[in-house]
Simulated scan of single mutants.
Amino acid sequence: MIVDTHLHVIDRSALDYPWLAGVEPLNRDWTYETYARDARRAGISTTLHMEVDVAEPLIEAETGYVGTLANRPDSLIKGAIASCRPEEESFAAYLERQQANELVKGFRRVLHVMPDELSDQPLFRENLKRLGGTRFTFDLCVLPRQLERAMELVDLAPDVTFILDHCGVPDIAADERQPWQERVTELAKRPNVCAKISGIVAYADPESWIAETLRPWAEHTIQAFGWDRVVWGSDWPVCTLGGGLLAWVAATHALLEDVSEDERTKLLSENAKRIWQL
């Protein structure tokens, strides 16, 4: 069975997502029910909900909304990676409130669509250090050109577990392997970073990719981090831009055809269970 570490639910009747206006193919509701139907068909047994960059005043409302989904009978959702704003003075109080919510397993501040200088701010970096000694992870969603900045953040907080989203968001369609490859290798030298093999179908040519198209990118990430520091994620519904959940799961199994059962299990479930205590 698979642990999906990267589900987005979009419900425009409950929350506001300003960024959706600029991504027309995703600008609609993507319900938990729709996801759960295909997830169960694909062998997904457990899911972490990933924040969806809602309007800032609704960040805690999003976590509450995810809690209602998690509380449904037989829900796949067993945890949430919540949004946060480390660049703000209010972060410390926000962090304290989330410590009381067992659903919250970690945080993410979307960086790949923000100015590079955001993570350079002293307050951002000081607040990131506050995660040390807590149960919380921090997801890094960065572009290849931002990986050096990601390394700086990781080095500032060596007792925080960081998760690199989407293999570092490589441009697979353009086959741009550098500087992505070198920087992923360098980032992986930090023992407090894990990598998420997630949603990379969205970065390939949607009309022509096959499993072998994805292999160099997934395999390099796995080789750099090792089998004990990789997890799997769907990035649903973003993965629908490249064929959808079932296509991505099928491609994943094809990519893992020649690995050992122990290695497959680590990537698909056991590492995630250990990292987030699922």
Rank of each mutant, 00 (worst) to 15 (best):
G132K: 14
D175V: 09
V259H: 00
Q223T: 04
A100F: 03
E261T: 07
A247Y: 01
V154D: 01
S45G: 11
W232E: 03
L255V: 06
E257A: 14
L123C: 12
D228W: 10
Y65I: 09
R264F: 00
R229I: 04
R130H: 09
Y32M: 09
P158S: 13
A254S: 03
G132M: 10
I197G: 00
E89H: 14
E56P: 02
R41K: 13
E56Q: 11
E126A: 12
L58S: 11
L156D: 07
G64Y: 13
A224R: 01
A80G: 11
Y203G: 01
T185W: 05
R12A: 07
A195C: 08
H220A: 02
A272S: 15
T252V: 07
E148W: 01
E62K: 05
Q178S: 05
G79A: 12
I172K: 14
R125G: 01
T265V: 05
L123T: 06
P115G: 11
R264E: 12
L246R: 10
R97N: 15
T5C: 10
P191C: 08
I222V: 04
Y94G: 09
H253C: 00
K105R: 15
Y35S: 03
D171V: 14
S234M: 02
E148N: 13
V3D: 00
T185K: 14
S260C: 01
L214W: 03
L131Q: 11
V154A: 08
L95S: 10
L111K: 11
Q98K: 15
R40N: 06
E261I: 13
W19H: 03
A92E: 15
E56I: 06
N71Y: 04
Y17G: 01
P179N: 13
T185G: 06
E89L: 15
E182H: 15
S260A: 13
V169S: 07
L156C: 10
T185P: 08
A251W: 02
A224M: 06
W248C: 01
M50H: 05
G244D: 10
